[in-house]
Nucleic acid binder design. Sequence first.
DNA 1: GCTTGCTCTGAAAAGCGTTCCACACATTAT
DNA 2: ATAATGTGTGGAACGCTTTTCAGAGCAAGC
Lengths: 327, 327
Amino acid sequence: MANIREIAKLAGVSVSTVSRVLNNHPYVNEKKRAEILKIIEEQNYVQNSNAVHLSTGKTMVIGVTLPLVNNQYYSSIIEGIAAEAARHHYKLMVCQTNNNPEQERSVLHLLKNKKIDGLIMCSRSSSCETLNEYAGYGPIITCEANDTTSVSSVHIDHYQTFLIGMEYLIKKEHRRIGYCIGRKNSFNSQHRKRAYYEKLRSIDVTPSPEWAFEECLTIQDGKNVVGKLLQTEERPTAMIVSCNHIAAGIIKEASRLGLSVPEDLAVIGCDDQPIGELLEITTVSSSSTLMGKYAFEMLHERIWTQQLDGKKEEKELSPVLVERLTT
Amino acid sequence: MANIREIAKLAGVSVSTVSRVLNNHPYVNEKKRAEILKIIEEQNYVQNSNAVHLSTGKTMVIGVTLPLVNNQYYSSIIEGIAAEAARHHYKLMVCQTNNNPEQERSVLHLLKNKKIDGLIMCSRSSSCETLNEYAGYGPIITCEANDTTSVSSVHIDHYQTFLIGMEYLIKKEHRRIGYCIGRKNSFNSQHRKRAYYEKLRSIDVTPSPEWAFEECLTIQDGKNVVGKLLQTEERPTAMIVSCNHIAAGIIKEASRLGLSVPEDLAVIGCDDQPIGELLEITTVSSSSTLMGKYAFEMLHERIWTQQLDGKKEEKELSPVLVERLTT
DNA sequence: GCTTGCTCTGAAAAGCGTTCCACACATTAT
DNA sequence: ATAATGTGTGGAACGCTTTTCAGAGCAAGC
């Protein structure tokens, strides 16, 4: 297929002029512009974007990492990112990392070798050093709090979220409260647990290890929780659960095993997934779509101001209690 | 940052030799190779992928279009694509099109300007001509049946799916059966409707227009169906629904309004979304993840054999009935 | 001893568009 | 009338890597 040199030759002008036409530069004689456009049309010419990228040093692509693609929480974040990115003519490279630092590093690498202009990490498992290292090659935003010095973030205040949930349960006279979270040692989990333990301490309840469920990632994990709960000595009367999917598993299994919700077991979820609405699950919700939007905005600004050394910024989303039928 | 020329100069060799090292070409003296690798390491050098792409004419990126990112059905397809793509070192550019032909065209364009090596369209709204036109620039696979001459597809046999569902409902003695589908005129919908009408005709039932619900896309749309059902003269005793999300909406709303499922209203869904399992919805299921996997395989083969003019291929996935509690 | 066939290396072309600089010409301002 | 500003255009450098081709040197085979 034709290239810009060929178009220039056919139009009897220089490549510079053709390039100006392609980029809507004003300093081109209107008659010539029309002529050139006609030839471009005839030749069915389009720029080779790889040449453009090489030349400009930008790709108009941003990377997005997430542990797994098929998950509503991450999908909602991406939805927010995608809408905002589209407005600014950016494309998204969505990379599933399976929470594997190796795979994550390969995505960070895209920043170094200039395949992407910036990166949003919906979750990350790389070390702080790795992140700081790659932050030198292009802007990175995480959608979790992070402990680096240079990587900004937009995140839900998970401490606050669990706090609100716990306060609500306590107000409803629950004292034996269990929790259910995903990855045991993630940043998010640490904040959630801190709120959980602080709140229980504030009402002088000593939490039993039997009330704690970690590494709950699937609906089935949620279901399994109920079986274990039934075997505990002092069964919790309420569970605070990091996500509504798991909460749904708990609720379904509970009613299958004859526990009524919320009478025998109250359940409160902690996200804004639609399954929560469908199953009428009480939840402490923040909009993950909005988080995605903010993440893109922050990234975009950094891409344009090139502030690789810019100071770290943290934006926190405050959760809201949505009272429904499971508490 | 350093480029290949600089590395060559530092190592006292030509750029060709450095390039050979970078690409693991065998014909390089081992001592030199080690030396060059050391310098690459020291200089923290990596290839500029845009230059590589320009030179090789490949980007190792494939595009994926879908109407909206935040949807379990499409997410499962992407999951299948992503896993397979990762195995072959391809990255995914995920593009939300909102079922808008304009936006879809902008993605097809990526093929023309060489930003992607191939394209999987999880859904499409472009015309057949448009698709055929762009198929000349690179391989395209659709995850729906399509009526083009050149674009291959992997798809669920929606006709068969509805057929199985209808036969099952009829075997359960239902005669007044309604249906609920998404986009009114999509290829998929046409096949579904054909099965629906054929089956009803085979038992001499004249379908009422009141039993037909189209453009059902959200859970809320599903809920709305129930309200309308209650106002019909001859209420259907069963609904066949194109997706489990909508089915879930119907089921929830039905029980809220005092209709018991399946006694007053049987509901059968038609996909493999996890909400079906959670809510124990009977469903006619095909694995959308598997579909994604097949789509990538097919695309990958086409990318490597370059058969732009290859004959059209169609792979159909056969559905399976999963009997649960809503029928 | 001569031919074949490897192994290894470098020069140069090919892939393609953007942008800076210089220059020409035309206006407008002083 | 002269300086200053704006419009329009081309040449050439720049961004960077891959790949083809040509050739040198060396070993094995006949």
